[in-house]
């Protein structure tokens, strides 16, 4: 449905997006991940017709962003980062105005605004000025703005940044509900969020795509190793390290988070060996006190850090 073709965007000498190509299917929920300044926002801004591409193009259906900006804008609902809205307008007035600009039939505007208010849970603040709203409410008004004429594609730029955990979950619920029928593209740098809501994740670093795939596949891609974290009492660090290093499958031993009176180690292990029984046997044999013993699979976070490391 959306075809990004060799998109490059430069600001003067700075290359914000560098030769990015991406196809997004109808109905996908796509998470755009990347560190700050990676080019997420720029990509979204070109897609929504706010910035013209320097090179390459974006096609949505049959329309090209260079020649058919208006028809693409009609298909896309966009919420910019931090939801910039007219501060001194009432929520109701604002949404009615957006409905007018979106060309919704005057007879249906009221009904549509009501429906959105219910969907985004902003019925209680409809009569308030936007500057009086909390960040969470403002973000939801922004969502209502983006979903006004039921767009085929919903583009959200960091929709949950600056929200408290409850609000984040509420926004995610809305995204999930919308994502059942629509194409949703959102950027974030919160990995758990992408993990929880997306079908597909694209990681951008320095203007280039460094990873692209289904959420599960991406996680497995990096799961050649797993970590075993162990905390022991009544032991000496060096003795422990020597003992554990004899176990087959342990590839590296690092010091874990220090805690007083305890030896804290993180064992990096090969995914083909389960080192836990043997490691536990060593602990028993040496009569060490065990206060922590758990395995972590390589998370999306590790993938992200590997791919976006400097240099």
């Amino acid at each position: 449905m959306i075809h990004i073709e060799h998109l490059t965007k430069r600001y003067g000498d700075t290359v914000a997006v560098n030769d990015v190509s991406l196809n997004i299917e109808k109905g996908e929920v796509l998470g755009l991940l990347g560190p700050n300044g990676a080019g997420k926002t720029t990509t979204l801004r070109v897609l929504t017709g706010y910035l013209p591409p320097t090179e390459g193009t974006i096609r949505v259906g049959d329309s090209d962003i260079r020649s058919n900006t208006l028809s693409i804008k009609r298909k896309i609902g966009y919420l910019p980062e931090s939801a910039p809205l007219y501060q001194n307008m009432l929520v109701y007035d604002y949404l009615m105005d957006v409905a007018a600009i979106r060309g919704i039939d005057p007879a249906n505007r009221m009904a549509r605004v009501r429906e959105l208010a219910r969907m985004c849970a902003i019925e209680d603040v409809m009569h308030k000025a936007i500057h009086e709203l909390s960040k969470g409410y403002r973000q939801r008004v922004g969502l209502a703005h983006a979903m006004m004429d039921d767009p085929e594609i919903l583009v959200l730029d960091e929709p949950t940044s600056g929200l408290d955990p409850n609000q984040i979950i509420e926004i995610r619920e809305i995204i999930k509900a919308v994502g059942k029928e629509k194409t949703v593209i959102f950027s974030t740098h919160i990995l758990s969020e992408a993990e929880a809501t997306c079908d597909r994740i694209v990681i951008i670093h320095k203007g280039k795509i460094v990873a692209d795939g289904a959420t599960e596949a991406l996680k497995q891609q990096a799961s050649g190793r797993y970590l075993l974290s162990v905390k022991l009492t009544g032991a000496k660090a060096q003795v422990c390290k020597d003992a554990f290093s004899t176990v087959e499958g342990v590839e590296e031993i690092k010091d874990g988070a220090p805690e007083s009176g305890q030896v804290s180690l993180v064992l990096s292990c090969n995914a083909n060996n389960d080192v836990r029984p043997e490691a536990f046997q060593i602990i028993r044999d040496n009569d060490w006190g065990l206060s922590e013993f758990h395995r972590e699979s390589h998370s999306l976070e590790t993938v992200f850090r590997e791919l976006t490391k400097e240099n």
Partner: peptide, 14 residues
């Protein structure tokens, strides 16, 4: 300054 320019211009207007 406020950034509403982006919200406005990504609506279907020129």
């Amino acid at each position: 300054n406020v950034g509403t320019y982006e919200t406005l211009l990504t609506l279907p207007v020129t």
